[in-house]
Design a protein around this nucleic acid. Structure first.
Lengths: 225, 225
DNA sequence: GCCGATCATATTGTCAACAATTTCGTCATC
DNA sequence: GATGACGAAATTGTTGACAATATGATCGGC
């Protein structure tokens, strides 16, 4: 009864908040793939009742984030490389169309703001601060989502990202991922500035595909020869 | 303890199966938007225990299909027209990319099979059997999904469709929706046969957008002047 | 030391009882 | 007849106890 419970003086947090908490733990790599989530442990940490915790597990299982086995409980699901690949294909489609919509909908201020974030990211590369880079990268993609005003797609992309969030974080530390991303962003921004929705979409898709390629190479470096 | 219980001689169905059952009821318009889902009622009909039913509710709420209010229970969520519009934009992106992938991956037999389904649909128009048309339409889109072998996208599209499934069903009965769909399918198929992935993608997006336009006009005809 | 059986513990699955809240009918009052 | 207070019934929220299963330790035999 320490972490979430303190933030919420109520009797107990409802299932969605417990789910949020678990999700945040996974995104922060405090819960890693394969790890078992014991009910009493979550109860202690969140202050939620057992039924609430179990309901939260069901929610997360529906999202594909947890795996529930009979009499063995919930564990963080490990996405296979094949699944990650499919997931990135979905992201390419969704973020691609958002890039096109952004090009059509964005005001000059919006575009300028996007350019500024990209610029800050470049300074991060020079400073070698991958952590800050990751945060700005999130801002950059969120900015596009916000302008297109499609909550459904924003939610979907967020969910699609959760299972690989911990890997993304690592990836910026490795190889030339940051400079690659910078180049991609510049290509996207160029198309946006030229009022070329199709070009922006194409560039965004390429950006996502590059991300996938980097993840697969990262996977090989970590696990297989 | 009548419907699902009979089909399953086990002690009681697990939460995911109860969720499936409720989902099917919604798709079949037996549960309509706004309708409250009383726990004991679901328990009687499925044979599940109360905790199972509640967990199933949470799953469906996570999918956005149900709405859960404190002390008021679960009810079928009504998707606003704005939300349906966003949802179709997502579908356009996802199914569009699948059409392109299908063009690249499909064997000649696959393409032929797709053409056959489309042909059967044309006979349905002549016979005026909207119900059969709807079923074949599902087959047509499923066929594309199957060939592209992307379970993630297939699952997403299925979920995106569930909230409007009951409207889709009606829409085929109205106006010229069927002939419109036939034309769209023909355009998509033409691009596929010409090995033109981008053309197929474009045509598929247009097809989805047409579906949305039809839904909005249907909505106006039903509710607003 | 290694292997398998056996048992204690930990964990999850199920259920029933009780508390809290909403819902709906009843009735008195205006 | 409309309105609002009251209370019974229905419904949901919460908790705890018990059953079923898995997990891990212990022990005996080889």
């Amino acid at each position: 009864m320490d972490e979430l419970a303190k933030a919420l003086p109520k009797s107990g947090p409802p299932a969605p908040e417990i789910a949020d908490w678990i999700r945040s733990q996974i995104r922060a790599s405090r819960f890693v793939p394969g790890q078992r989530l014991v009910e009493v442990d979550i109860i202690r940490r969140t202050g939620g009742s057992r039924s609430k915790v179990r309901e939260a597990f069901q929610r997360l299982a529906a999202e594909g984030l947890l795996e529930i086995e009979e009499f063995r409980g919930a564990s963080v699901r490990e996405a296979s490389l094949e699944e990650v690949s499919q997931l990135y294909r979905a992201r390419a489609a969704l973020e691609g169309i958002c890039a096109a919509d952004f090009t059509r909908l964005a005001t000059d201020e919006d575009k300028e703001q996007l350019r500024e974030i990209a610029q800050k990211m470049e300074t991060c590369v020079e400073a070698g601060s991958a952590e800050q880079f990751g945060k700005l990268n999130s801002d950059w993609h969120s900015m596009i989502m916000r302008v297109t005003r499609n909550h459904v797609i924003a939610e979907l992309v967020s969910r699609l990202n959760t299972p690989v969030h911990h890997l993304l974080f690592q990836s910026f530390y490795r190889g030339n991922r940051m400079t690659q991303a910078i180049e991609d962003h510049r290509a996207i921004l160029d198309a946006i500035m030229n009022d070329d929705p199709e070009g922006a979409e194409k560039a965004m898709r390429q950006h996502v595909e590059n991300g996938l390629e980097f993840l697969t190479s990262l996977d090989k470096a970590l696990f297989g020869p």
